[in-house]
Design a protein around this nucleic acid. Structure first.
Lengths: 150, 150
DNA sequence: TCGCAGTACTTGACGTATCATATAGTTGAG
DNA sequence: CTCAACTATATGATACGTCAAGTACTGCGA
């Protein structure tokens, strides 16, 4: 059924991409869980907060930045709040607004987890590729993201 | 925090890849849901069954082939069975074995869904890339999959 | 042929993602 | 100044995915 829709090169690229991301996601999730008690979702939220000024971010803006739905972020933050990784504050100047803040525990959690996680990213993907491949991957991603994007 | 772990090209490739796959997955899921009542998981299972001889596959082998856990497949099949897309049969010759079979309804569902889905795959990814990029993407995927693989 | 280790699969609990809906605060037209 | 439309966020239902545990059958050594 495939050859009707994609030629061999396209098919190879598409199936390969699908398989790669399935496996990679599973592996990174496992590695991260092993030495950190964090899920990929936790890690993503925490790393964005760490990179932010003042370790805080307004809900909507963070959701946009991460390209998550507001609902997804809201649920995620609720779970993380329960575990003490983040806290919520009122946004000054707009009674509807909420701000997520990285707690000390959250900061500590990602500080500890990052070296291992980035090692895994290298091991399972980045270090397997040469510079041309990395550059092409970046191009591909930019192209696709620009098309879907914003 | 990034530059400590990845150089600029690596970082660009990595963040780009993550963003691409987040957006692409979401878009394909939405497109598929719009004209088919199928999730990506449904679609994947159905398309593997369609490609199989006799429209059937033993659980373990299908799970291996798709690189899914048995549990994941079992849950998915249960949900699909409930909707009449697949059926389960006993595996002859081993009382423990189970076989998933594509029903007529399941066949019809994927027959109808495939053109639109493949159009979306082209539109949001394949047709955006030139032949070199596709070939490189296939290489990258093969490399990563071989590393993680089997 | 007994019994136990191993294999095939299912189930339950829980975290995660989506959509639809609810709630509360804001803003602008009149 | 009021109210309807809009925005920011939260929540409930349900689908999805993982891990751990359970059930049931197989096969093999003693």
């Amino acid at each position: 059924m495939t050859s009707r829709w994609l030629d061999p090169i396209e098919d190879h690229a598409w199936r390969g991409y699908r398989r790669m991301f399935t496996l990679l996601e599973a592996q990174l999730t496992r590695d991260l869980a092993e030495d950190s008690d964090l899920s990929m979702a936790d890690y993503t939220v925490l790393s964005n907060l760490v990179e932010a000024e003042d370790r805080r971010w307004r809900m909507t803006e963070l959701a946009d930045h991460m390209q998550w739905s507001q609902s997804r972020l809201s649920h995620q933050v609720k779970r993380m709040e329960r575990r003490g990784l983040v806290a919520r504050e009122q946004f000054e100047g707009d009674g509807r607004g909420a701000v997520v803040v990285l707690t000390d525990a959250g900061f500590e959690a990602i500080r500890v987890a990052t070296p291992g996680h980035m090692k895994a990213v290298r091991k399972h993907m980045i270090d397997l590729l040469d510079e041309d491949q990395l550059a092409t991957l970046a191009d591909i991603a930019d192209t696709v993201v620009a098309h879907l994007g914003e």
